[in-house]
Design a protein around this nucleic acid. Structure first.
Length: 577
DNA sequence: GTAGGGTTAG
């Protein structure tokens, strides 16, 4: 009988009956265990391998380590992976490079950095850091644990770097927020004559999202692999994140197959761009073709409702998610619903939801509550939320700016002094307000009041002109308020030279009006910049996209995709403390 | 036949 012609269950029962089978049957069976996420079946096969004495087969045992490492069904499965490795050592096997790679990958999946480092020392001792599979596995271990430096070091030590080595280091850069370095590695890879594959391209598209490097992404994709569903989804996602909803829809429509993730990417894209109707329509289309939404899809749908202020719709989708799709709401879903109530000024309803939730609210929920309390003049609730936020997030400069703004605008100087003292004690630094603009794939960075900018005089003149013109259209600058507290510490707000104003002005000088301006910002936008850029989008009749630390703002004809409520923005961002 | 890819608002 040819064992490979058996189906999984038949083959498994042969093994349990103790029938002798050829060792070639184990690999496809174990492979199927990974797909079925079935630890118990893998254990049956494992037992059999040991029983008939095949356990000295290095390849087979290495594969078994891999199976246990990849099964997430049982908490102990991954511990089994290490036990098999130790058993291998105990029978006197000398681990091959592949074995070490697999074990490192198990460490990576379990975030077992300590154990990974021990194995790394063995690798150094054996002097095999140069080996391709060992180096690649080391690279992904360090990358997964957030240590980009060590990941790059591991990559550089590989003697014969293959496409997987390059892809690993490029995606490490993306995962660890150094897109610039990722793109440089990509350039180096091409110059060394290594051709990218669909895996590399997906990682590159993801880097381009962060960099707003639309044209790098568009050019990259000409290399091919468009038929790959993951590449297609990454492309849709890149266009969305770079603010081009039109190109994203085009890429989405042109895909030959779509997975749940593809649908969810496009739904989320419409939501971020403030297109409620398209979001809901696409959600319906998805259901009609029989793809079941998951919790992330519902985050997209609910956030679209929140941008549009549609509370009844949001609650209906919330119920649909629970009842029809049996998805248990998580914090993200509650946060969307709370956000809608806050935007509409229904703070009590929002607070009721917080009280009824099964979990402790996270910092974003308190952030929303504080901003809403401030704009809807419910100071006590605002202070309450602010103190809770401080407890949750005591190291973040933005939290303190929010708190100080709240207390200063209420004239509560005792609290202002207390917060200032806390900041000193906690060694909280000044907010790092930076903006970047990408023009013809070159990235220019700006910080507030930066004196040595390119085209400084020209840009300042243009900014002054724009402010004047915007004022004629009804713009009321909110910066430059002098506030004196009881300790006579002069606190001034200067929003005129916030980094995004400088970046947008520089963009206007250096791009044609037909091209949208893309700015990325390190903190969240302040109310003044938000309002100013709305006027600029009227004055220039162009599109301006600012991706700040909290959300995407696409300004067209005086409106912003974030819902234009304005109430959930920082009052001012800069304080001289 | 062991290593690398895509979705989460606020």
């Amino acid at each position: 009988m040819d064992p490979t012609s058996l189906d999984f269950q038949e083959a498994l029962s042969l093994i349990t009956e103790g029938t002798s089978v050829e060792s070639s049957i184990y690999v496809p069976l174990l492979q199927e265990c990974i797909e079925r996420n079935s630890v118990s079946e893998a254990q049956v096969i494992h037992g059999h391998i040991v029983k008939i004495g095949t356990h000295e087969d290095l390849f087979l045992m290495t594969f078994l380590v891999n199976v246990y490492a990849k099964c997430e069904a049982m908490e102990n499965a991954r511990k089994l992976a290490f036990r098999v490795f130790i058993e291998m050592l105990e029978v006197g096997a000398y681990p091959t490079n592949y074995t070490l790679g697999v074990v490192l990958n198990a460490c990576c999946l379990m975030y077992a950095i300590g154990l990974g480092k021990q194995i790394h020392s063995c690798i150094v001792k054996y002097d095999i850091e140069y080996d391709t599979s060992v180096g690649n596995a080391l690279g992904s271990l360090y990358s997964n644990c957030g240590n980009l430096n060590s990941a790059v070091k591991a990559f550089l030590k590989i003697r014969e770097k293959n496409v997987i080595s390059w892809t690993t280091v490029i995606s490490s850069c993306g995962d660890n927020r150094d897109s610039g370095m990722g793109l440089r590695f990509f350039g180096k890879m091409l110059s060394e004559g290594v051709g990218p594959n669909e895996f590399t391209l997906t990682s590159i598209l993801s880097l381009c999202c962060v960099m707003q490097a639309l044209s790098v992404g568009s050019q990259t994709i000409k290399t091919g692999f468009l038929s790959d569903v993951v590449v297609g989804t990454a492309l849709v996602n890149m266009y969305n994140k770079c603010g081009s909803i039109e190109r994203a829809s085009k890429a989405f429509v042109e895909m030959s197959t779509r997975t749940l993730i593809s649908w969810t990417s496009m739904i989320t894209g419409f939501a971020q761009h403030g297109c409620l109707q398209q979001t809901l329509q696409l959600f319906e289309d998805m259901r009609l073709v029989g793809v079941r939404p998951n919790k992330i899809t519902f985050v997209g749908v609910l956030s679209a409702c929140s941008h549009a202020g549609m509370v009844d719709e949001a609650l209906a989708y919330f119920e649909m998610m629970k009842n029809e799709h049996k998805i248990k709401p998580v914090m993200d879903h509650f946060a969307c619903v709370i956000d809608i109530f806050v935007r509409l000024g229904c703070l009590d309803e929002a607070f009721e939801i917080i009280k009824k939730m099964d979990f402790e609210p996270n910092e974003f929920i308190w952030y929303t509550m504080i901003a809403g309390s401030r704009s809807h003049k419910n100071l006590e609730l605002g202070f309450y939320a602010a103190e809770l936020l401080l407890k949750l997030n005591p190291k973040n400069s933005e939290t303190y700016v929010l708190l100080l703004n709240t207390y200063i605008s209420a004239g509560r100087w005792q609290d202002v002094s207390r917060v200032r003292k806390l900041m000193k004690d906690e060694k909280i630094g000044k907010l790092k307000d930076w903006s970047w603009i990408s023009i013809k794939d070159k990235v220019y960075s700006f910080k507030p009041d930066f004196q040595f900018r390119p085209q400084c005089e020209e840009a300042d003149q243009l900014l002054a002109d724009l402010i004047e013109k915007a004022k004629n259209h009804g713009y009321e600058p909110q910066g430059d308020l002098g506030v004196t507290d009881e300790q006579d510490e002069e606190t001034t707000f200067s929003t005129i030279h916030h980094s995004e104003k400088l970046a947008v002005t520089f963009g206007l000088l250096n791009t044609s009006n037909a091209v949208p301006i893309h700015v990325i910002k390190s903190t969240s936008m302040c109310q003044d910049c938000h309002s100013f850029i709305k006027f600029v989008s009227i004055l220039t009749a162009g599109e301006i996209i600012v991706r700040d630390s909290k959300r995407l703002h696409k300004f067209v004809s005086g409106c912003c995709s974030c819902g234009d409520f304005g109430s959930l923005l920082q009052l001012f961002l800069e304080l001289n403390w």
